[in-house]
Design a protein around this nucleic acid. Sequence first.
DNA 1: TCAAAAGTGTTAAGTTTACACCCATGA
DNA 2: TCATGGGTGTAAACTTAACACTTTTGA
Lengths: 226, 226
Amino acid sequence: MANKYYADEPKYNVAVDCIIFGFEEGSLQVLFQHRTIEPFNGELTPMGGFVQENETLDEAAYRVLTERTGIKDLFLEQLEAFGDINRDPGGRVISIAYYALLNKAHYDKSLLEKFNCKWVNVNSLPVLHFDHMKMMKKAINRLQDKISYTPIALKLLPEEFTMTHIQKLYEAILNEELDKRNFRKRVSDMPYFVKTGKIDKSGSKRGAAIYSFDYTKYQELKDYHL
Amino acid sequence: MANKYYADEPKYNVAVDCIIFGFEEGSLQVLFQHRTIEPFNGELTPMGGFVQENETLDEAAYRVLTERTGIKDLFLEQLEAFGDINRDPGGRVISIAYYALLNKAHYDKSLLEKFNCKWVNVNSLPVLHFDHMKMMKKAINRLQDKISYTPIALKLLPEEFTMTHIQKLYEAILNEELDKRNFRKRVSDMPYFVKTGKIDKSGSKRGAAIYSFDYTKYQELKDYHL
DNA sequence: TCAAAAGTGTTAAGTTTACACCCATGA
DNA sequence: TCATGGGTGTAAACTTAACACTTTTGA
């Protein structure tokens, strides 16, 4: 497709970089892949890819995500564009950073080898190159901010969960302990958390009530109230 | 500069679009310029320009801003990247949207004709084309959010101002009336608002105390407390 | 019977909101 | 002297934070 008017203006490669969060064994994790070219060959980077001509930025990010994780139902949001002149030694690349939240129970582990990927605990991040640490910090901050006023964090959990699961999740994201009674009170006050009536006996002898999240109810309440 | 590794990947024009806010006569305003090409020749758009090879995204936005307004001391922050495939009929352009806050007292009015610009009250926005209305809404929302926890809005005021000035400013941004006593209490509680000792007699017979903002003190407090 | 996680309320502290009158001055 | 905007405090409502014991059950 010929560019009709802007022929004299410079053009650049445009990429997306996705910080992909997962949650397992009480820890917030991020998915990285090993670089396959110099410089920093073998070192870890967020999931990235170039924006193609037939896709929007969001679509490019979504494509990269589904390709690398096999997951279609996830939360995806743009963070910011990064465009420092020499941010990528391979050439000038403008990168649009995204973050995504997915349910690791649905993650296809065979893709770990296929794409040479690795889940890393956010508390033991590797050295990151380029401006990837800036992206990480932005992603974590955004996630921390956002879970206080939206239930997006639930995309990190299985469809069914206990109060303890949600609390551990919030504690992992916020990196601080929360008061059990206050936390449960706040969660219970939101009408879109519904008891399934089932009991999870895996975590204790007594068993814990299993909840699910009613996205339909959430949308309604959001539309009419918040 | 040759692109070393990514020769096969598509390239795009990359632009910045700046939503520039000003404040005058009690109203929040935005600076637009008239398009000079089809489609929508003559209609209003935010201040835009292409990102050049020797500048970062922020620098491109800053260049556009200083060029179009003559102002160097302003608040500038990235909003989001817009990259829908046909967002610009002139060709595929990825646009990085910014918003900026400036003190209209320093605005060089001769630039109005030079760049064929126009200040418009936010309450009477013109029809906007492309994805410009999305950018506007994002900018206004961000500004509204952000003034509740940072004093950036002061960049819209002269260096010296009265309590009434700040209140009118906040009311214009938030688009709602605020309680005078509560507002003044909150402002006075922040130690970086300092009374200059001067009196502004322009607004009333009695005269109002003139304040200024101590940016140094603000930085200190921010570093050690917030 | 006991260890381990689940579940449950109340009080104090802090924050936010609502609200009305006097002051100083120039015209 | 009066019209105009400047300036000030308090009480009620609401929100947030702190805190400890009982329940259930499988091993």
